[in-house]
Design a protein around this nucleic acid. Structure first.
Lengths: 332, 332
DNA sequence: TACAAAAATGACAGCGCTACCATAATCTAC
DNA sequence: GTAGATTATGGTAGCGCTGTCATTTTTGTA
């Protein structure tokens, strides 16, 4: 079995076997237009007997309207995008749409190349993370006759549809919370803010609010690479080496925060009395740690669902703010 | 901007604009067949000027050979499948292939429905998790003229290609390790073994080896739902309530083990002197915990890469064993 | 210069389906 | 029973490409 060559059954063969015309088979299969019950039974019997599987490539070409939805996401290992995809994929599936995806690794140039490659499939919609795209990406998307959905960010001007929440506000709320709890010497541990622009917006909002509250950020440690538990741990270690007198640290997300948490556990730093930790994302794991995380829970699955829903119903251009929820955990 | 209707530029229009025939444009764009440098420049200029994006739907239909690869995976939230997808997607992309996916939620009936829907796209290959499929799924796949790749499991008979490692052996090795370290009263905490058949195979191998070694499994706690950190924590708690004198616990994977680890931290159970913990997967997070995890590291990204490679080069049917690595951590 | 071989090119028939139109069969109301 | 709807059905022209083949142009060689 090196390569199987049986030419696939075609609609024409089904039509012949059922003794009806091609268009009748097509109508029956799509349950569209009118046909008698007797005809339907004959067609379905032939379909069953021949093991016919409709060719959607041909169907899409003939009908112009595509049922593909293209996702161009920064990462799959990041649970955030996996959750969005999961939310979207069930909704899409229920509406006979199909998800296609590509991973950019947070590289705008790759995003551009991948969007180009995706558009070649003439998708019904292209889903992207956030607002920051190259000029080329924007130009291509604008020229394409498909819906554009920007996800997980609404701090900016949408190209078409946008579903998510304000990262800037999330940063502000986090800062407010810490100030309100009387933490005064606050630091930040994060990952590449240039690439993950949503994290950058949170950071900006966070710093603004701290400054406005009279307790500007004391120190920060930014890891050049991607966010990870390990980088969170290393980041906190370095930060505390430089600034041992911090009383709270804001992390770019819960993965990083978990690393910080582990660092504290390993060094016997008691949380939150010696050091408070605040994260972002509301990962499940943060609810199971000995001390539940103080963090912001984001509507990731819902973002995917809503985005998919808007696409299948071809909703007018709009920005949907799904908000977020601040979780008062035990770490800050 | 409710719906954009600009009819897309077609190859015929490019041909006209460049003053050449359609086939010439096609040849230039695919860099296949012969054409002069002058012609190439004229064509590329026209492509640029008109903003032409080739229509792969039409291309695929015309050339029969599809460049789609369909993934039907149990879950996206499970980092295991996200890693496989990530590994595969970069390799596929380099070879001008495109990944399409659908999520089964570990439901074989859904798998069958999704495979049917995937086959309608006439993919070059269908990638599935493991060997356990419904009869209908197998029949459809056999009838389809595409490659079939079963991932992350080689304990069984492959339909075509299979890439992964032996889960049964992984269970055996884990048991050996614990026995060798003189743990005698061993328990198990896991999730639904019927659905996650790979976890079931590990469990079986584990138990066999323990019995053969004279220290059969003392007790087990199996959570009906999916694996998660939270269920790991709850599972260990229940297990220890029933069997407080265990000295080691094997978890169905690192997520569950992490939950167990947190339970021990919270209850002040010292690891590994009071209780040893052994996991499975080799997640990054297990390397950053205050005590690195004793676990088995699986080649998830490599599985995706190899699977994709075999598909793009249309390799003959075979089973590729990528093995796994036992990590001697500090928890067992 | 002549002639074969190689390179470059265009015309056109599909790929398998859907959309549209024309026709045939059946039904309705008087 | 008949005109006028209504429902059912088949024929066929594309959708936008690719692959084949025939034709034209260029190149190489004696």
């Amino acid at each position: 079995m090196d390569f199987k060559y049986e030419t696939a059954v075609t609609l024409a063969q089904v039509a012949e076997a059922a003794g009806v015309g091609e268009s009748t088979v097509s109508r029956v299969l799509r349950n569209h237009g009118s046909f008698s019950g007797k005809t339907r039974d004959r067609v379905m019997a032939a379909v069953e007997r021949l093991g016919y599987v409709p060719n959607r490539i041909a169907g899409t070409l003939a009908s112009a309207g595509s049922r593909l939805v293209a996702f161009v996401v920064p990462s799959l290992s990041n649970i955030v995008f996996a959750d969005v995809l999961r939310g979207a994929s069930s909704t899409l599936e229920q509406n006979q749409h199909q998800a296609v995806f590509a991973v950019t690794d947070y590289d705008p140039a790759r995003e551009e190349a991948l969007v180009a490659s995706m558009l070649a499939w003439r998708p019904a919609a292209v889903m992207l993370a956030g607002y920051e795209h190259t000029q080329g990406t924007v130009r291509m998307l604008r020229a394409a006759s498909c819906r554009i959905v920007e996800l997980l960010d609404i701090d900016g001007v949408a190209l078409d549809l946008a579903v998510g929440f304000s990262n800037h506000d999330a940063g502000c709320r986090s800062a407010h919370y810490l100030l309100q709890r009387h933490y005064g010497r606050i630091g930040y541990v994060g990952h590449d803010l240039e690439r993950d622009t949503r994290a950058g917006k949170r950071y900006a909002g966070f710093c603004e609010t701290l400054s406005a509250g009279g307790s500007p950020l004391v120190d920060r440690e930014i890891h050049a690479g991607a966010s990870s538990v390990e980088n969170g741990r290393l980041g906190l270690e370095r930060l505390l080496t430089r600034s041992p007198d911090l009383d709270a640290v804001y992390f770019s997300n819960d993965d990083m925060a978990l690393g910080g948490y582990f660092h504290c556990l390993a060094r016997g730093i008691s949380i939150p009395s010696q050091l408070a930790i605040f994260g972002y994302n509301g990962l499940d794991i943060g609810r199971v740690t000995p001390q539940p995380f103080s963090t912001i829970r984001t509507p990731r699955v819902a973002t995917g669902q809503v985005a998919a829903q808007l696409v299948v119903e071809n909703a007018p251009a709009q920005v949907v703010d799904l908000g977020f929820e601040l979780i008062e955990g035990a770490t800050a």
